[in-house]
């Protein structure tokens, strides 16, 4: 094992991992984080905490992760390069590790123009691949990115995102290969709606043998209704929502659409369980965390494995 991460232990044991995510609140309300933690605790192996997602200011990922850790969950610290230079990134990693947080997700980050502070300066000192490289250097060499020796170097289990649906498509596997070369251990994919395209991407990954080098967690997002599906299709960059998803939701009455969305997510998981290279699921129920237990249960992913 490279780290003490619960996620690493589960993935290395060959069992399908289940992660989810908790979006922190837009106010200093620890009880909101605790409530989400309680909801998810028995149903997921690890819980991501987003980092100012869509560039909207929220309780910081690190503080939220500490709250979840103290509740007995295994949090995954999401970290974007948008808001932090390499000094701040490393300081946060040291702080996280001091609280026993040993799993993180390295992200470049959505551009700040999407959020509630579009006039802010961005940082982008590093990109996600360089962040992975840096965190891996800390783990392997015990040194800061700048080269100085660390007294106690955090050994982070390193995750990253991959979007099989962004363009240019032919680059998507090559870019994943770069993340692997940089030292990434696991990948959480963008929300999958286009199963055909995802299948093609996974096939390319397996053809290259990359599935042997990285654990891929398939990103699952249940649709709350037709409105959400249309929004995701038309407004969210890099999202691929095929017409068949829209039409299926359209085909049921409005009050039944949420249930249909959950059923679609469950069916997706069942299909993907059989797909070579898929080592687990990352369930992103956006501001709908209460549905994660139902999805996990109906998809036959319970009970979650116990690891030391």
């Amino acid at each position: 094992m490279k780290t003490e991460s619960k996620l690493e232990k589960i993935l290395e044991s060959g069992q399908l991992a289940v992660t989810s995510e908790a979006g922190p609140p837009r106010g200093a309300e620890p009880e909101v984080i605790r409530k989400k933690g309680e909801m998810l605790k028995a149903y997921v192996d690890c819980c991501n905490v987003t980092d100012n997602q869509t560039a909207m200011v929220r309780v910081c990922s690190l503080a939220s992760c500490i709250i979840l850790k103290q509740m007995g969950l295994s949090p995954i610290l999401q970290m974007t390069a948008r808001d932090r230079n390499r000094l701040a990134i490393q300081a946060d990693i040291l702080g996280a590790y001091a609280f026993g947080i040993n799993t993180m997700l390295c992200l470049t980050g959505d551009h700040q123009s999407f959020g509630d502070h579009p006039t802010a300066a961005n940082v982008f000192d590093l990109d996600s691949i360089q962040m992975i490289q840096g965190v891996n250097k800390i783990r392997q060499e015990g040194t800061f990115m700048g080269g100085a020796k660390m007294t106690l170097a955090p050994k982070m289990f390193i995750g990253a995102a991959a979007n099989p649906f962004a363009d240019p498509f032919e680059l998507r596997v090559m870019r994943l290969a770069k993340k692997i070369a940089a030292g990434v251990d696991f990948i959480q994919t963008q929300c999958i709606f286009n199963m055909d395209k995802f299948g093609k991407w996974m096939q390319m990954i397996c053809d290259e043998g990359l599935d042997q080098k990285v654990h891929i967690l398939a990103g699952i997002t249940p649709m709350k209704g037709l409105g959400m599906a249309r929004y995701m299709k038309n407004k969210v960059p890099g999202m691929d929502v095929p017409d068949e998803v829209i039409n299926r939701l359209k085909g049921v009455p409005k009050e039944k659409q949420a249930d249909e969305g959950i059923t679609m997510a469950v069916e997706q998981i069942q299909q993907l369980k059989e797909m070579k290279g898929v080592h687990g699921f990352h369930i992103m129920a956006i501001e709908w965390e209460e549905k994660v237990p139902e999805i996990v249960e109906r998809a036959g992913l319970l009970p979650r494995p116990k690891v030391d």
């Binding site: 470049t108 360089q130 995102a161 962004a166 960059p237």
Partner: peptide
């Protein structure tokens, strides 16, 4: 995002997410 190892996941149809 001045990425040296791009493109990010927001690249769509040759356009920037911004």
């Amino acid at each position: 995002k001045r990425m040296l190892n791009g493109p990010c996941g927001g690249s769509t149809g040759g356009h920037c997410e911004v």
